[in-house]
Nucleic acid binder design. Structure first.
Lengths: 214, 214
DNA sequence: GCGGCAATGTTAACACTGTAAACATTGGCG
DNA sequence: CGCCAATGTTTACAGTGTTAACATTGCCGC
């Protein structure tokens, strides 16, 4: 069981063609079912049908690959949030729409953590990481990173008159803290055992807390 | 630099005496300056002045050692919270005291994360972990785990009439989510660069949010 | 007291990892 | 068309977790 993809079509050309992309894809696959610790250089090269050292032509070291995978995972998170936003019904009440907007961001965040716990863990694994929360590599199809999607929702809340402008600054950290913490509890913590409906319930309550407390 | 403790007093007896404890201590030291990934069996045995395989007489595998270290780290977190509680001035206002009680738990939590980021990361690293949030091994000098200290604070809040009893159930998850998330942002996230005073400020604001939103 | 057993450590080995240096191949540019 | 830079391979080394076979010795029952 050392090789999940024993004999890949075993390319005939000497050059691979798009090894960088192949390694990233393999790494993402490894992360999806194994978390950050499972993204291993040699296994990635194996799946790409290439010798171990070949990876060093495209990534400085294992850490560099892991960070690329991590960015891809954050991009997936951004898409999950976007999914939640897309399902938002068109509302005529501006204020209610803004509130729903913020809630959808939180709900999408937690939903992704539950659907892809290993990718979620990977997205937030390496230190020196979250710092660049706005790197384009972390963006989803909307072109925005999870952090930016959250900020947009908060801005919307202000413009809708639902959040006093003087409380806007820093609010993203409060909201993010709450949602991120909940996501962690939901996949690794005491909330792990709960079913989807219950998780949704706790999430709603937490979003209430954020809304009232912000 | 493969061995930080080159020639330990190199015991004369064949038996070590308390290898289990020595390994755990070494593991904790490794975790303190290197995080969960740095707690490595062979290095721990080296520091204990013992051969690599000896560890297997006391821990099933590396994971088992890591989990023991993790419990110890949580115990440290419990003590940090207790420190914050101990510094609480004796108040005569029951309600204010209960509010301060909860805030102290949150503040101690974040303070520990900032003071010992690697231990904090270790405390919450292995999956299958937070589940047993009440294991005695995770308790601090008060005999309570971080989770139990939080619950006690919330109970106090109810008894002081500051939290409606019907909103008590599950409140621990909301409060924990917020504080835990903030702690993560403060050590690995965008809040990493902030100074102690600024972190205290954000923490206060977050605790306001929790208090108003609970 | 003492003999043997079970607990504890040691040695040696295996399979795996990341990484570097020297070498091989080849696409494309002058 | 020939050469060079980019890309991939081979080989090697140090480090890791883990196991099996062996060594030592504290302690418990006779």
């Amino acid at each position: 069981m050392t090789n999940a993809h024993p004999d890949r079509p075993s390319r005939t050309t000497y050059r691979h063609g798009d090894l960088h992309h192949a390694l990233l894809t393999a790494g993402l696959e490894l992360a999806r079912d194994g978390g950050p610790a499972a993204v291993v250089l040699r296994e990635a090269t194996r799946r790409a049908g290439v010798s171990p050292s070949a990876a060093y032509r495209h990534f400085a070291d294992r850490r560099a690959l892991l960070e690329a995978v991590c960015s891809a995972a954050q991009s997936g998170l951004a898409n999950a949030i976007q999914d939640a936003l897309d399902q938002l019904p068109a509302a005529n009440d501006r204020a209610a729409a803004a509130r729903a907007h913020l809630r959808a961001v939180g709900a999408g965040y937690v939903a992704f953590a539950r659907a892809e716990p290993n990718l979620f863990r990977t997205a937030f694994s390496p230190s020196e990481n979250l710092e660049r929360a706005e790197s384009p590599a972390r963006a989803g199809r909307s072109g925005m990173t999870p952090f930016q999607l959250l900020n947009a929702a908060l801005d919307d809340l202000v413009e809708a008159g639902e959040l006093p402008r003087e409380r806007r600054a820093g609010a993203e950290f409060l909201a993010w803290s709450a949602v991120h913490g909940l996501a962690m509890l939901a996949i690794d913590g005491p909330l792990r055992g709960l079913g989807p409906a219950q998780i949704r319930g706790v999430t709603e309550r937490l979003l209430d807390m954020v809304h009232h407390g912000l």
